[in-house]
Design a protein around this nucleic acid. Structure first.
Lengths: 244, 244
DNA sequence: CTGCTCCCTGTAAGTAATTGCAGCTGTAAT
DNA sequence: ATTACAGCTGCAATTACTTACAGGGAGCAG
């Protein structure tokens, strides 16, 4: 097993997206995976979300995947959205489940993937600042057992997170969150506003005039560089200033 | 080095918070750490945020830490909020930096920590669904070198994320995000509203009447179980329905 | 002391959101 | 073919937010 720290340092040296991809391909190969893919902001629900993808999955499979809207079906995606732990998909050859319609569709999807050269692998969820999440998948053409995968997990897990930190430089919209310096009062008002309170109600809660609440929210909105209370809430949440 | 997978299975067996804490203590000890701490929703900026903490840091130090408002000073906290990669703090004995006031305060903080039995260690950021983030720290009383820490990193990193998934059961407010079934139009409207657009503007964008936009947002607000557009935005963001 | 930041408050006009009513279309499943 | 649901629209009254005007007080650093 190669040194995990040395791998990370390799990633940090990358200066372009292409260099990064090449480095990752090299590392994945060393662990026995022919394919890998890093996906960020996958449009699971929100179609207008623009995803960022990097990696070497067979393009035929990727096309097939999106055409069939597998994003909404894939249990790997569902797991990664809600959890922080890796998901292993070892090589299996189970009969198709009988009852459930959805289960059968999933079974079929995995079989199709196998035909495209994705036999077994591991997917690692990566969650970051601003509710942005993605996943890093490593896939092998030749079957790997659960045990094979298990002893790679710690290294791949760390590697995935380092790739996430290294790759965010290239994903769009990860511009500096511009953590404006908001005062305590401004954050307090934003907090309550995000909870659905009106200016007048917040005034009662803080024992100040309604006008004062409006004043603070006005300042906060301006500092966040947006127009409107609603946009201010969105910005404050993704910047980690409030947690509703 | 014990089997990482076996460790994870131990965590999943825990049924109470106390069992979980005891299990983690056992694992941390095997890796050579006397102290560990898991913190979630730390009130770095927002004082009214209620944090969740679990762990065995010396209580004297924790008190000292919060009294002095080290949360705002601690570079470990700042790193963990913005990154996904672990931070190692090996045993050092550097002279106090001269110029910067803040740097000196940080230097002093680490020295104080050492006196409380936290000589060296590693901190791992954990980010999860709904913009909730925290960190898992392992600390040793006896000095550990950078190399000592480095080869523990992959295992501890995975372990931290498994603890995060296991521990969320006990942290307050991680109730099911109640992913209400919103329609495509509703999500579309929420998306633009979070961007600061007015109902009329969204109407133009979607080529529908202003009234229709109001209608969709009304339905979305109701499905999300909140009152007011602002609260709907907050809910939609933390539920992962939109990404501004 | 002067300048700075944060906190606080008022009036008033204009704009936007909320909520009640009532009604229409098309598609998909039972 | 009936039901169900998503999408769409109009009017009207009330409430809430936005913005522009104006001002005072407390605390802290140079």
């Amino acid at each position: 097993m190669s040194n995990a720290i040395a791998n990370i340092e390799l990633l940090q040296l990358c200066e372009t997206q292409e260099q990064l991809a090449a480095t990752i391909s090299g590392l994945a190969g060393k662990y026995g995976f022919e394919h890998w893919m890093y996906g960020l902001d996958l449009p699971v629900i929100d179609d207008r979300k623009q995803q960022y993808m990097l990696g070497g999955y067979p393009s035929d499979w990727v096309d097939h995947y999106f055409v069939n809207e597998y994003l909404r079906l894939d249990p790997v995606i569902a797991h990664c959205q809600a959890h922080s732990t890796p998901l292993l998909w070892p090589s299996t050859n189970t009969p198709p489940p009988s009852t459930d319609k959805r289960s059968r569709a999933v079974w079929r999807m995995f079989n199709e993937a196998r035909e495209f050269g994705l036999d077994s692998g591991i997917s690692i969820p990566v969650h970051g600042l601003g509710c942005r999440w993605g996943l890093m998948s490593f896939a092998a053409k030749t079957p790997m057992s659960l045990q094979d995968l298990q002893h790679l997990v710690p290294h791949l897990h760390l590697l995935a997170h380092c790739i996430h930190d290294a790759g965010r430089r290239y994903a769009p919209g990860i511009a500096p969150p511009a953590t404006a310096h908001l005062t305590a009062r401004e954050i307090e008002c934003l907090h309550w506003v995000a909870a659905g309170k009106t200016s007048w109600e917040i005034g009662r809660l803080l024992s100040v005039a309604e006008r004062t609440v409006v004043f603070h929210l006005q300042n906060a909105t301006q500092k966040l560089g947006v127009s409107g209370r609603q946009a201010a809430i969105a910005r404050a949440i993704v910047a980690g200033l409030i947690t509703p």
